[in-house]
């Protein structure tokens, strides 16, 4: 399973970057020899230049901050609701019977289909974007929390009862830790949906954010800025994924599948 164990850690950590770097070199060569028109794809150096210009003007930082704020609030609100509802439905059968049908119906509506309605309700302000992200991240966290709670080993719960644990201890020492791997899977899916929703929401109607920066650049045919925006999304996505990896390696130390990552 662990084949790279003889190599130093920093080398194994870098293997994932070999392909992206190779692709960038290939791209630089292709634009250098004009196999690709700079209208279609600008040279990597142009994008670096665009990034430097936007950083110096402060525009990049402002837009990333605006996007991150929306993403953060949406994740916090949607994630909390999904987590609590997942706990609730997983722990109490009555709640499950009462709420599950509703949740399943809502799940099958693509949340991006609500955009026209969201614009009518919230206009083009912040609330509409946060609302969409909230909807997007809610379901994966809900479903995985619910699933994690439901699949806790009943033998462990029985053991806990024999060893005199009260209901709170049963939850905090057995049910919740048992559900955590599943909850973290939900969080990872949610982070993916968070960026996806944000990109769509920001390209529709906004005055700030990375999506808006890309839409503006399109108006003026600034392909370098458009590509830069896309790359920032890729990097932010990778960052979010790394954060979850880090959480997993800390929280799930006990799990043989997550050890020594």
């Amino acid at each position: 399973m662990n084949t790279g164990s003889s190599l130093p850690r920093w080398i194994t950590g870098l293997t994932g970057w070999v392909l992206p770097v190779f692709l960038i070199i290939l791209w630089a060569v292709a634009t250098e020899y004009s196999w690709l028109s700079s209208q279609i794809l600008p040279a990597p150096i142009d994008i670096v230049r665009a990034a430097i210009n936007l950083t110096v003007s402060g525009e990049l930082a402002k837009n990333i901050a605006a996007s991150a704020e929306r993403a953060g609030w949406g994740l916090l609100i949607g994630g909390s609701i999904g987590f609590l509802l997942g706990l609730f439905n997983g722990l109490f059968r009555i709640a499950e019977r009462f709420l599950d049908t509703t949740v399943q119906m809502i799940r099958n509506v693509p949340h991006l289909a609500l955009i026209p309605l969201v614009i009518i309700w919230f206009g083009i302000g912040e609330a509409g974007k946060v609302f969409l992200v909230t909807l997007g991240v809610f379901f994966p966290i809900y479903a995985n929390t619910y699933h994690g709670i439901k699949t806790t080993d009943p033998q462990l719960i029985e053991m806990g009862r024999v060893y005199g644990l009260n209901p709170w201890q049963l939850f905090s020492q057995i049910i919740f830790p048992g559900a955590l791997p599943s909850i973290l899977v939900g969080l990872r899916y949610s982070l993916g949906l968070m960026w996806l929703t944000l990109i769509v929401a920001e390209t529709i109607a906004t005055t700030s954010g990375i999506g808006q920066m890309a839409m503006n650049a399109r108006e003026f045919m600034q392909t370098d800025v458009v590509v830069l925006a896309i790359m920032i999304y890729a990097l932010l996505g990778k960052l979010a994924d790394t954060a979850v990896h880090f959480l997993e390696s800390r929280i799930l130390q006990w799990h043989p599948g997550f050890r020594h990552r």
């Binding site: 033998q155 462990l156 955590l180 006990w254 799990h255």
Partner: peptide
């Protein structure tokens, strides 16, 4: 029990 039923996260 027949199985040890230890909590793997402790």
């Amino acid at each position: 029990f027949q199985e040890a039923r230890l909590l793997p996260w402790k």
